[in-house]
């Protein structure tokens, strides 16, 4: 048959081209890191986050003044709308109680990072576990598993249906006022989001051909979930984590604004600063600008890095 001879030619050609490529495929993670280093958004995001973390660590030592001492108390009269803006002495001006805003910003970075990261982690970890259970039960658990999935998802739906701020307020009201409460309250709000996201992503992967292939190979279900479905379902969760870090900071600020935030006034935090400055926005808009812009830049940094990570981790986009 003439087909056979052409076939072997094509085969040889395929082998030739295969041979000229890099002889061994790079490991997925190493490859992802290489691509992360090359990507500009990742670089920018990384620099921003590094700067933020650095500030959070060394902030208290490099702050020129005490963040809590009302040193220039006699110069600011918030009830009369008299404020002091940026000047050589105080780079970012003074707040309504006569404290140095620049020092408060530097010292506040730590608290902000803590609230953002911890509450995001609470939401991510608890949500991911719920999503994993639900997704695994739904894809490979048969009829019984689908019941479990139904039940779990209805509960998360209830959580999701509650306005997030209301949920946070309720948690804060039940647990009393403290920093831990703020973190838990903000984290709890994120749980259903992560749970839904991971479950949905796992469901999509669970129906794919390679999962069918793994099942027909006779691989154990638990192993299929861990090695096949989960790794391919994580990208949207990673992106969501970076996004919710930004919202967590803002949520925490909203809680402080409602008087449910950290009651300790000796620890400045960007969100608290923003909510306090908001009252004087008409007279001194710059006072709220500094924490707002800082939050935005930080959030942007995390988002850029998250997006770049998603791209780097997606093997289909590799080239």
């Amino acid at each position: 048959m003439s087909l056979v001879s052409t076939t072997s030619k094509i085969d040889r050609l395929a082998q030739l081209t295969a041979g000229t490529e890099t002889s061994s495929g790079a490991s997925l993670w190493r490859e992802a890191m290489r691509r992360l280093r090359r990507s500009k958004p990742a670089l920018i995001g990384g620099v921003v986050i590094a700067a933020f973390v650095l500030l959070a660590v060394i902030g208290p030592w490099i702050a020129p003044y005490s963040p809590t001492d009302q040193t220039w108390r006699g110069e600011v009269f918030s009830n009369r709308g008299e404020f002091v803006g940026a000047r050589a002495e105080n780079w970012f001006g003074l707040d309504h109680l006569g404290r140095d805003v620049f020092s408060r910003m530097l010292v506040g970075a730590r608290q902000t990072l803590l609230v953002g990261v911890v509450s995001m982690l609470i939401g991510l970890l608890v949500g991911a576990v719920i999503g994993l259970v639900s997704g695994a039960a739904a894809t490979l658990g048969g009829r019984f598993g689908q019941r479990i999935d139904d039940l779990v998802m209805r509960v998360t739906d209830i959580l999701l249906a509650l306005p997030s701020l209301l949920l946070a307020v309720s948690v804060a009201a039940v647990m009393g006022q403290s920093l831990t409460t703020v973190m838990i309250a903000v984290g709890v709000v994120q749980i259903p989001v992560f749970a839904r996201l991971l479950r949905g992503s796992m469901l999509a992967q669970g129906g794919s051909d390679y999962v069918l292939a793994a099942r027909s190979l006779g691989i154990r279900k638990r192993r299929i979930v861990v090695t096949q479905i989960l790794p391919n379902s994580l990208s949207p969760v990673i992106v969501q984590a970076t996004l919710s870090l930004a919202t967590a900071i803002i949520e925490a600020a909203a809680l402080s604004y409602l008087g449910l935030g950290n009651p300790d006034p000796s620890v400045p935090e960007w969100g608290v600063m923003l909510s306090q400055a908001e009252r004087f926005f008409d007279n001194e808009p710059m006072m709220s600008m500094y924490p707002a812009v800082a939050i935005i830049i930080t959030a942007l940094g995390f988002t850029l890095l998250g997006e770049a990570m998603r791209e780097a981790l997606d093997p289909k986009l590799r080239g």
């Binding site: 997925l28 051909d209 069918l212 292939a213 027909s216 096949q228 790794p231 391919n232």
Partner: peptide, 17 residues
């Protein structure tokens, strides 16, 4: 009993070598 699938790419886990 083994199976060969229709979509060659879709039936291979992209994260496994």
């Amino acid at each position: 009993l083994q199976m060969v699938f229709q979509d060659p790419l879709g039936s291979l886990n992209p994260r496994q070598n």
